[in-house]
Amino acid sequence: MDSITAAAFAASADAEPATPSFTAREYATVRVPARHEQLHRDTYSAFGWTVEAWDGPAASIVPRTTTSTLTLTRDRALRGRQALGELQRQAEGALRRIDALERSRSARATAVAVALGLVGAAFLAGSVFLLDDGPSFVSIGLGVNGLALWALAWPAHRLTAARRAAQVAPLLDRQYDAVYDACERAAALTR
Rank of each mutant, 00 (worst) to 15 (best):
A8W: 10
D42C: 00
S45A: 15
P33T: 10
S12E: 15
R31N: 11
D2G: 15
D14M: 11
A13D: 10
T29L: 05
P17C: 00
S45M: 07
V30T: 06
F22C: 05
F9D: 11
A34N: 06
S45E: 15
Y27W: 11
D2A: 04
F47L: 09
F47H: 09
V32I: 10
A34E: 12
S12Q: 13
T5G: 11
I4E: 13
T29K: 08
P20K: 14
T23I: 14
A6W: 03
Y27A: 04
H36Y: 04
A6D: 12
A10K: 14
S3M: 11
E26F: 00
E37T: 10
R41V: 12
A34Q: 05
R25T: 07
A11I: 02
P20H: 08
L39E: 14
F47N: 03
E37L: 08
E16Y: 06
P17E: 10
F9C: 01
E16S: 07
R35P: 01
A7K: 14
T43F: 03
E37W: 02
P20C: 03
A10H: 05
A7D: 12
I4C: 02
R25H: 02
A6S: 12
T5E: 14
I4H: 05
E26A: 03
R31T: 11
T23V: 14
T19Q: 11
L39N: 07
S45W: 00
R31I: 02
L39W: 05
T5L: 09
A11N: 09
S12W: 05
P20Y: 04
A28H: 08
F47K: 04
P17W: 02
V30F: 12
D2K: 03
E26W: 00
F9K: 13
R31Q: 13
D14N: 09
M1N: 08
T29D: 05
V30L: 14
A24H: 02
R31D: 13
A13F: 10
F9A: 15
F22H: 13
E16R: 08
V30H: 07
S21H: 07
A13L: 14
A34L: 03
A7H: 06
A18N: 04
T5S: 15
A13S: 12
F9W: 05
R31W: 08
A34K: 00
A46L: 01
I4V: 15
L39T: 09
L39C: 02
V32P: 01
R41L: 06
A24I: 08
A11Q: 12
S3Q: 11
R41H: 00
R41P: 00
F47T: 04
A13N: 10
T23S: 07
E16M: 04
D42E: 14
E16F: 05
F9S: 12
F47Y: 07
F47W: 10
E16W: 01
M1I: 00
A18I: 05
R35N: 09
A24K: 10
D42L: 11
S3D: 15
A15C: 04
R31K: 11
F9L: 13
A7C: 02
P17I: 11
S45D: 07
S45F: 01
A10N: 12
A8Y: 10
A13I: 06
T23M: 08
V30D: 08
Q38V: 06
